[in-house]
Design a protein around this nucleic acid. Structure first.
Lengths: 113, 113
DNA sequence: GTACAATGCATAGTATTCCTATGTATATTG
DNA sequence: CAATATACATAGGAATACTATGCATTGTAC
């Protein structure tokens, strides 16, 4: 992983929720690969952190699951619940505001792409 | 509103280093107050997290200290070492790049203030 | 056709980071 | 003169993500 994993802390759930908001349904392994591709390998979510996170999201009622079989191999799809959609917006907004504060604190010029 | 402390995780050292880069020397309590003022109360660094962090920075050789007495009360000033100045730039840059990645991932419009 | 890589799930134990709670002491202010 | 602010410190705990490991199936390169 490029970024020190300490920076990722606190943002993993937000990343997962946002992906599910954009994609209707995804399975765990797919999420790890998607993040890797989207970030050009800069963020690598390990399975050891993702699966417990997904279980937590389900526990909290923000996602629901459906299990399918691809041949003999199981695949567990996750999709946002209505509560999860609300939570996603909250989380993204909170992170966005946190970033604005950090940009100011650290004197960073944000990419105005 | 105070940000959930989970978001702060991984950024505390960076914040402290940047403040020291801008201010030549500061003491612990002063840092907590400065951050509170600069962020309009949105980020509150507790003493229970700041002091151990400062000790760690000293341990790593990124800051040096000078103790002064204000009356009978002790005050411990911290200032960046040359290695600390380099480290600060690295840390700020790393966070900046992480933010760019997150902005893209989360589809956030950064403040182009 | 078979070793090796990739796909796909899972969890236990560990590391890191920060917070809460607590303690001590001095200075200021209403 | 009591409450609040200043100023340091640490022990124990909570939250988060990682490493290491395990199991099984599918695809690929030699």
């Amino acid at each position: 992983m490029t970024y020190s994993s300490e920076l990722i802390k606190g943002t993993l759930k937000t990343i997962v929720l946002k992906l599910l908001a954009d994609n209707k349904r995804m399975y765990g392994y797919e999420i790890t690969q998607r993040v890797k591709v989207l970030t050009l390998g800069k963020i690598q979510i390990t399975e050891g952190s993702l699966y417990p996170t997904l279980h937590a999201l389900e526990q909290e009622g923000w996602v629901s699951t459906e299990t399918e079989y691809i041949g003999k191999r199981v695949r567990k799809y996750y999709s946002l619940s209505p509560a999860g959609k609300t939570k996603t917006k909250e989380r993204v907004k909170e992170f966005s505001e946190f970033m604005d504060t950090m940009v100011f604190l650290l004197g960073i010029k944000p990419k105005t792409s």
